[in-house]
Every structure is written in C-alpha cells, then in structure tokens.
Write a protein that binds this DNA or RNA. Structure first.
Lengths: 179, 179
DNA sequence: CTGATTGCAAACACTTTGCAGCAGA
DNA sequence: TCTGCTGCAAAGTGTTTGCAATCAG
C-alpha cells in the first residue's frame, strides 16, 4: 500500500531470534568466532576486547560509552574499529541496534538474553525495558495476515511515568477533558 | 530497571492522539494556526506552503523529498526553514517523526489520520503500513502494569515479504527448519 | 513598531572510509 | 604468505545554528 522510502535497516544476516535457538547455551564468544570463521574474518585481540566490553553492558548503551569505557581500562582501540566491530556483532546476531532519535544509535546485547521492548517516560527520559509474549504473538499474527515471515521487531511506548506525574501535577493540559 | 542513556525523543508537546480527539474534523491548517498563536509564533507564507506540501504526502516521507518537491513547484524555501517547520508541525501534533535507521528521519502526517505501524521487508525494503487495535490495547495494558500514562508508540516489524521469498527461494537459510 | 522568521553558510555530531603498515591463519 | 585488520585523519551527511535583513501581527 505504501511506497517505501529507501529503508533498509541493518539487521543481522541471520535472524537473531532464530539463531539463538539453535544452540541455547553456547557461549557468546564462541558464537562470534564461529560467525567470523564462516565469513572468513579474523578473531583479533581488538574484537575480543570489544566483545568483552559489550557483554558487560546491561540494557542499552551508546557507542561512545563503550569507547570511553575501553579507554578508561587502558585499552587502545580506535573509534573506527569499535564501529566496525559493532557492525559485525550485529551481523552475528549478538547485538541489536536500536533507534530512538536521529542523533545516534543505541545497541543492546540480544544473544543469550531476552529481547526487550521499551517503555519510555517523555518527561524524565527514564527507560523501562520489558518483554511481552503477547506482543510476539501479535506480531506473528500480523505477519501471517500479510504473508510475511517474521524476523524481529521494535516496539517503543512513550508515556508519562508515575514519578513524573507526581512531580509535576500541573503543567499544561490544554482543555483535554476525559469526557 | 534500566538506567537511561540520555534518550529524550522529540514528541509532540501535546500528545497527538489525545489532541486529535478534541476536534475530530478541524482542518489541519486551523490546528496549526491555533498552535502557532498559542505559542506566540507567526503564520508565515513559508509555513503555510510547507504545511500544504506535507499534507499532500501519504504515508512516510523524507525531508529531502519534501524540499525537492517544493523546489520543483518553484517555491523557494531554505532547508533550514523546512526543518524548523517540521519541528513545529511535530509539536503541534500534526506530524510524527519516525526512526528507521541512523541516517535520517522520516515523517508522517498523523493529524486527522490513523496512526500507523510498520511491517518492513528486510529484503526488498518494502514498507507496509498497518493499524492494529489489539496493539493499542496491549500497549495500554503494558502501561497500566507500570503505572504509565500512554501517549504514543512506535512499532516496527521486520520480516521477509511473500514476494521476496518467491523471488529468492534459496540464499542461505542456515538450517532453520520450519519444524 | 517589535519580536519572530528567513536564507545562507558555517558549524555540528555521529559514522564511514581511504590508506599504509601490521598481523592472524 | 596472503588476506584481512587497525589506527589515523579526512570525508560524509543529515540536521542545527548564528546572524543580518525582513516581515507578520
């Protein structure tokens, strides 16, 4: 129904969700090495180091955080290598790239972990990660209706957190009556 | 549970979905003028022109498309003014900004139209816009669980379209059996 | 009149890329 | 050895911003 603007999101070469199920408890590092081998790429100290740092992250992180962290640990890696590695980790189905704004990308480990959806408070910026089987079911249903084979999804809900509402009870509800 | 990276997405100052209900059939232009007046901003020919172009768009569009279109019509607008106006239209709840990748933003008119969620083929890049009440219900449920007041959401499903599968039956399904 | 707006070009920030030397396999 | 990898710095690109002239209210 809609003509697509040239949208070709960078997704894992191998759908992360399916792949994770093939070997549920395989160490992530092994997954990465296998991927590299398959693609005739090399397992270098830099890549090992970056993977290591990535795996220590919980939830979302920004490339810059990662780079800072590595430098703080005395490791020397160039920004370029980090970005290149993040991309490989994504292709390997270990990482997922998330887009919240047009400033930068965020990443999140998905290998061996539950994928997340997000509930974001527009006032405080707080992000709650959650997981919903109902959502996955609904997703598959929608795919089926259109004959699509589901690979993955992104779901973000924006709202006002209880804390935010408590903090600023007034602020400018311009005549929106809950009629 | 998760510490938020500084994510503060640009959302309408007035939640689009609520606002749209206040005056279901009010012409969008009037909505914009009212918004501008409220904010002590001015209704200029440039803004009128941009709004006009925007309203002729169906589904997603890119700022660059919009600018091209305007120039092709012989209108003179600077890129800067377009971007500034897009931002106002967003604040007015007329437009919604969508993030698919880290290259650029996409926009979509929401005032007086159904909001959309997206089903995206990772092979062809085709985008299907759809609408699901079940999804909205689920969204509200999730919000309630966390005490959030829902404002809006983004939902994107990535998958393989029937056409894509038909076109390239082989290609590298690495032992994923439809068991 | 006065403060908001416009266009232009420069500035920005994240990300990518070209290249020469280095190093896994 | 033979590719692929790394770091650096330069190039890219969509978007934002500073500024002087202009214009809406």
């Amino acid at each position: 129904m809609a003509q697509a603007p040239h949208i070709l999101p960078s997704l894992p070469k191998i759908a992360a969700e399916s792949r994770r199920q093939t070997t549920p408890y395989e160490p992530v590092c092994a997954v990465f090495r296998r991927y590299l081998h398959q693609e005739k790429l090399k397992f270098t100290p830099e890549r090992a180091m970056i993977l290591d740092a990535v795996l220590r992250k919980e939830g979302l992180f920004e490339p810059e955080q990662l780079i800072d962290g590595l430098k703080r640990l005395g490791h020397k890696v160039s920004r370029a290598t980090v970005y290149r590695t993040l991309s490989h980790l994504q292709d390997a189905g270990i990482l997922k790239q998330v887009f919240f704004d047009n400033k930068q990308s965020y990443y999140e480990v998905i290998a061996g972990r539950q994928t997340h959806d997000y509930l974001i408070c527009v006032t405080t910026g707080k992000v709650i990660e959650f997981n919903s089987d109902k959502l996955k079911k609904l997703r598959d249903e929608i795919c089926q209706e259109h004959g699509f084979e589901p690979l993955s999804h992104r779901f973000q809900i924006f709202g006002v957190s209880p804390e935010a509402r408590a903090a600023v009870p007034a602020e400018s509800p311009p005549s929106i009556d809950p009629a």
